[in-house]
Amino acid sequence: MDFELDADQRAIVEAVDALLVRHAGARRAAELAQSGGYDHALDDALEASGFAQVARGEETGLLEAVLITEAIARSAGVVSAGAALIVAPALCAEPLPGPIALAERGDARPLRFAAQARSLLLAEGDEARWIAIEDGSAEPVDNRFALPMGRWRSALPEGQPLGAGSGERMRAHWRLALAAELLGYMEAALDLTVGYLKERHQFGRPIGSFQAVQHRLALCSVLVEGTRWLSYEAAAKGADPQACTTAAAHAADSARQLFRETHQLSGAMGFTREHDLHVWSMRLPLLRVELGGASQHRRSLARERWGGAPKPGGGT
């Protein structure tokens, strides 16, 4: 057991953070949120610097991919990072044309990045498929949730099957990607809210000095830190399905609470476009319901742990 990043991992996080300072951030995300755009320039920068392929590296792998995905989310990058860095490398040996969207067969609801995607990874039962997407296959779905969504205009081509077992592998990595992105969003939303409540005075004192407020923020911190370590553990265990489902279930339910609390405690200012909270907070409801949301993650988790032959009571 060892919970610390090694020197190489710390260097990777520092390097991607430095890149993100130049190419991402709340102001850029706020502009893109308003226009419904996708940050192709950020994708290009991540590709050029090698971060996009880190899961396929010889010296790097899934944990580094999770750390970078989390960092991109923390910087409010408007890119399909989880799909590209975490999910696709688990299914395809070669990089896919991006942006990459993720979907389950039969789900016709609005989909993250559908209108920009050039690849779709589709989970269908035990198998996943890769479908090349042509321009104009999806129409944009107007939304206020800080990431572009789209809806397919017509039936998609069959695409390429990715082999037996690829369906389960895709769902596990998708859950890990959701956990990593939600972690980044929650960290940033909580940090911003805590900072704001230290500065904002009412009744002659910082709002953040009221115990009623402090306890709610502290509980948010418990949820964020739990999501962090469950996500890193799932990554370090090579996307073990039960660990990924646990991380996603924890992340999704934590995101529900972080969304409510950061907005409630930020007051009216938290609803405005001039305050940065929305670029992270508004993505929380969007990601927390993907892949069936917390309810589905929890049911899957119960089946993964107890679904087979009854296990004798043992370690957790």
Binding site: V222, E225, G226, T227, W229, L230, E233, T246, A249, H250, D253, A294, S295, H297, R298, R299, S300, L301, A302, R303, R305, W306, T316
Partner: peptide, 18 residues
């Protein structure tokens, strides 16, 4: 029932990892 068991297990796992 599965959902409740899964929800509780998630909290157990979070307590363990923290």
């Amino acid at each position: 029932v599965q959902e409740k068991l899964g929800a509780a297990l998630t909290l157990v796992e979070a307590a363990r990892i923290l």
